[in-house]
């Protein structure tokens, strides 16, 4: 029954265009994600909207994380340890839907992304494995 951690995790980096939220990412993104959680309180959302940079100053994010937050660069935020369900507090505060925010990570316009979804979504063919190219 026992499997090693590295065996279990080994293929997680082999999926094109995907960052699996592993414990490594969870640790890297700790303060970034905790900052996002703070936006669940209306009073914090107000302070945030009033002055984003000032609000961020209270949190132990790296400079790169702060820049990416201010730029709403969601792919970069994933690379810096963000998780989409935490980041959702940020784009929800912006009044964005999941489709709007998620589309920004695909290099497509939101209209093109919506059209792709209406046509049945992105096919898994060719994006299952970097190594295998399947």
């Amino acid at each position: 029954m026992h499997r090693s951690v590295s065996d279990y995790m080994s293929e997680f980096d082999d999926i094109p265009g995907t960052r699996v939220y592993t414990t490594r990412r969870a640790r890297q993104g700790y303060w970034l994600n905790q900052f996002c959680m703070s936006l669940m309180k209306p009073e914090n959302r107000e302070r945030w909207r009033a002055d984003e940079a000032a609000y961020l100053a209270d949190w132990k994010l790296t400079d790169a994380q702060k820049e990416a937050v201010l730029a709403r660069d969601y792919n970069r935020l994933l690379d810096l340890g963000g998780n989409i369900y935490y980041l959702a507090k940020l784009f929800s505060t912006d009044g964005q839907s999941f489709v709007q925010a998620v589309s920004t990570m695909t290099g497509m316009s939101v209209e093109d992304y919506k059209a792709m979804m209406m046509a049945g979504g992105r096919s898994p063919d060719g994006v299952r494995s970097i190594r295998e190219g399947t």
């Binding site: 029954m1 026992h2 499997r3 090693s4 951690v5 279990y8 414990t23 640790r27």
Partner: peptide
């Protein structure tokens, strides 16, 4: 030793 602790946590969850 947070690296080790996370490793243990992961291994235990994989181990049901």
């Amino acid at each position: 030793d947070a690296d080790f602790a996370w490793h243990i946590a992961q291994s235990l969850i994989i181990d049901e």
